[in-house]
Amino acid sequence: MAATPDTADMEEPTARQQAVLDAVLSLMVEEGDQLTMTAVARRASCSKETLYKWFGDRDGLLAATVRWQAARVRAGRYDRPTLDIGTLRDSLKGFAATWLAVISSPTSIALNRLAIGHAASRKSNLGGIVLENGRFAIGERLRPVLEAGREAGLLAFEDSETAFRSFFGLVGRDVQIRLLLGDSLTLGPDEIARDAARATDQFLTLYGRADTSTNVLSAPEA
């Protein structure tokens, strides 16, 4: 049986399009609300006509950028019919680690600050774009992993959205709000790995089947 991806097949941006999306993220960090199609075209060394052809308009470009950033958050691959608690734990831990790495990056902080400002002022639909292509899309990406765990008898929950929100809270804690408010919090790879493992063990303590989870869960790392 082939391994199951953590998300449905999605059209991957070409290398050239990825360069454009990375240029958008860089400009958001540098210029914030002053992002324009002209600036993106100049930074990415392409024409505005090409941008409109690929992404439609500014909102389309922003939506693609958010999807590209959120695509870095993955739960890995797993064999659904033979899923065991060790593989489930590794998938959840991998998801947690990539999400923490993404939300603590300067590009995500700049993007989310901009989206919050636009949502408050109703200046644009950037807040809705970030919700739809960021938080909600990430939730849908992890849902199959959680449901596979339930089908395998490893997890016990009634509603996958509620289970996801619990996991999301355990992973994120107060990290994102502190970063958005300017706290000089720094998350290095080792700390991210420890936090991801701790959140995963806490989640499996809450939702793991007692007859399976207690055999593999390690004590939360200090």
Rank of each mutant, 00 (worst) to 15 (best):
D6T: 10
N215M: 13
R72F: 11
R89I: 08
V171A: 04
L217N: 00
Q69H: 11
E132S: 14
G60E: 00
A210P: 03
S166G: 12
G208Q: 05
L146S: 01
L155R: 01
V102K: 05
A219C: 05
E49W: 11
L180M: 03
P5S: 04
A210R: 09
L83D: 03
L100E: 01
D90E: 11
W68R: 06
A156W: 14
L111V: 09
L154K: 02
G208S: 06
G149R: 03
N125P: 10
G128Q: 08
V66T: 13
A197W: 08
Q176A: 15
E30R: 00
P189M: 02
A119Y: 07
L35Y: 02
D183F: 04
T186P: 02
F55R: 11
T38D: 07
L179D: 04
A152D: 04
T214R: 08
V102P: 01
E31G: 01
L204K: 03
T162F: 08
P189S: 10
A3E: 14
A3H: 11
L204E: 03
L146F: 04
G134C: 06
I103C: 00
D22M: 12
F157P: 08
A119N: 09
I116Y: 05
I85T: 02
D201K: 00
R113H: 02
G94P: 02
W54G: 06
Q176T: 11
Y207G: 05
P106R: 01
G94K: 10
E151N: 11
A156T: 15
G86M: 12
I103W: 06
A70D: 10
L92V: 07
F164T: 12
A2N: 14
T200I: 14
L170F: 07
D79R: 13
S108P: 04
A23G: 04
A148Q: 07
E12P: 01
L154R: 00
I192W: 05
L62E: 11
G128M: 11
L21F: 01
V40R: 06
E191T: 13
A222P: 15
T4W: 07
R209M: 15
A120E: 14
A193V: 09
T4E: 08
L179I: 03
A71Q: 11
P5F: 11
I129R: 00
G32F: 00
S108E: 15
T200F: 08
N112V: 13
D190F: 02
E132C: 13
D159K: 09
E49C: 13
F167Y: 09
L111S: 08
S108G: 07
E221T: 15
D195P: 05
I103D: 06
Y52G: 05
R165V: 12
Q202D: 14
A96C: 00
T107S: 09
A156M: 14
F157E: 03
